[in-house]
Amino acid sequence: MNLNVDLMINSLPLLIVGAGITIQITAISVGLGLIIGMFVGIARICNVKVLRALATVYIDFLRGTPLLVQIFLIYFALPMVVGQRVDPFIAAITACGINSGAYIAEIFRAGIQAIDEGQMEAGRSLGMSWVQTMRYIIVPQAFKNVIPPLGNEFIALLKDSSLVSVIGFEELTRRGQLIIARTYGSLEIWITVALIYLVMTLTISRLVSYMEKRLATK
């Protein structure tokens, strides 16, 4: 076996640009997921039956079907309905964002339910509405609880975002494929791609535990 180190080094600039795009779509998707997840997570425990049911359906569907199929649904199936081609970037962040929204909703739900119910009672007994108590008392406290699982979700999505390579979106994995198509260096390129993913996920998990420690001392 002969490892062509030059090929690995030469392909780095292209792959690192791809890694940047991977981080970009992950960050945008998690951002989208956070907004969706916050509302769906709260809807899941609110006392309006319809909202609770809708939230449950949303979470069940997105966690119960593969992300790859969801990407196909948005990129290939949706245009048949709306009669317009969907841009790969938009399709990628939409699929990933909607998907991670479901996981983040469950993270928020668990984080909120971990708060002592006396906190809600105290807020309500002071005349604050359910929404006010959620906003000023429960959610800010839940936020601390959800930092570690949110970090895990970010890492999971960063890896899963490699799936959007199948719709031709040029993030890290797709760039690797394209370089291999030119150079036939499967071994070198996939090792390099794997190492770049590893560096990214390890960095993020260190960052999260640092944040966790800082919040804990507060």
Binding site: G118, Q119, E121, A122, R124, L126, G127, M128, I137, K144
Partner: peptide, 29 residues
């Protein structure tokens, strides 16, 4: 909610808001 504005309650386990200063606990509502 209007009615509860007129009914103060003190709990066995205090139920203060741990993420806020004492002052903020009192001024929030």
């Amino acid at each position: 909610n209007k009615a509860r504005e007129e009914i103060g309650m003190v709990f066995q386990r205090f139920n203060l808001f741990p993420h806020m200063t004492v002052l903020k606990n009192i001024t929030l509502a």
